[in-house]
Simulated assay, not measured.
Amino acid sequence: MSLRALARPVAAALRAPRAAVAAPRFAGVRFVSTRFSKDHEWVTYDEATKVGTVGITDYAQKALGDVVFVELPAEGTEVEEGESIGAVESVKAASDIYAPVSGVVTAINEALGDQPSLLNKSPEKDGWLAKIEIKDEGEFLALLDADAYKAHCEGA
């Protein structure tokens, strides 16, 4: 086989539209990322659904101690960034939960009513507090990334 014959399929592939080549690689992929507030809440944002799952950080649960009660917002509640949306009570203290982003509460973690200790056992997974349909993605992007949050905690 000649070099010219080998070059034809390569040349044809190079002329193929890039979008057609690249698109299948990301089809169905969901982009999910987590950011943190200076008030020690975390938000895991799913770009596909525009919903952020909110909880308190491991740092916060350690500072609180054993959690004995959790107050959560009602589903359908419209929340504004920075406003109190609930509270956490522990054997040491009570602390407000602040909305890290604005939007509408679409779900709450009802398991926390019977098992508030989930916040201690699994604060950044099973102990999530609420899901919020985020109104402004820019608010999410303005939150701290993991490295900045770690630096914030070390400086606290």
Rank of each mutant, 00 (worst) to 15 (best):
S90E: 00
L141M: 11
G28N: 01
A13Y: 13
S95T: 02
L3E: 15
R25E: 13
K121C: 11
Y45F: 12
A87N: 07
A74D: 13
I85R: 08
V29Q: 11
G28C: 00
I108G: 06
F140E: 08
V21F: 10
G127L: 07
S102R: 03
P100H: 01
K150L: 11
E110G: 14
A16Y: 10
W128K: 00
D145R: 06
A63E: 12
V104H: 02
E75I: 10
Q115K: 15
E47H: 11
A20Q: 12
L119C: 13
T34M: 07
A5E: 15
L64M: 13
G55C: 03
A7W: 13
E80M: 09
E78F: 04
C153L: 10
A19K: 13
V43H: 10
R15V: 11
P17S: 15
A20E: 13
W128D: 03
T49W: 04
T106D: 02
A11C: 12
P24T: 00
W128I: 04
E110D: 15
V91K: 04
A151W: 08
T77F: 08
E81M: 13
A19Y: 12
S95R: 08
K50A: 15
H152G: 07
V70S: 07
V79S: 05
A48C: 03
L119Y: 05
W128H: 09
K125W: 14
A93R: 08
E110M: 00
A146M: 01
E154A: 14
V29R: 11
T49N: 07
E124Q: 12
G127D: 01
G155R: 14
T34S: 11
D145F: 03
E139R: 08
V105F: 09
T44Q: 15
S33M: 03
D96A: 05
A11L: 15
L141N: 12
K38W: 01
R15H: 12
I132R: 07
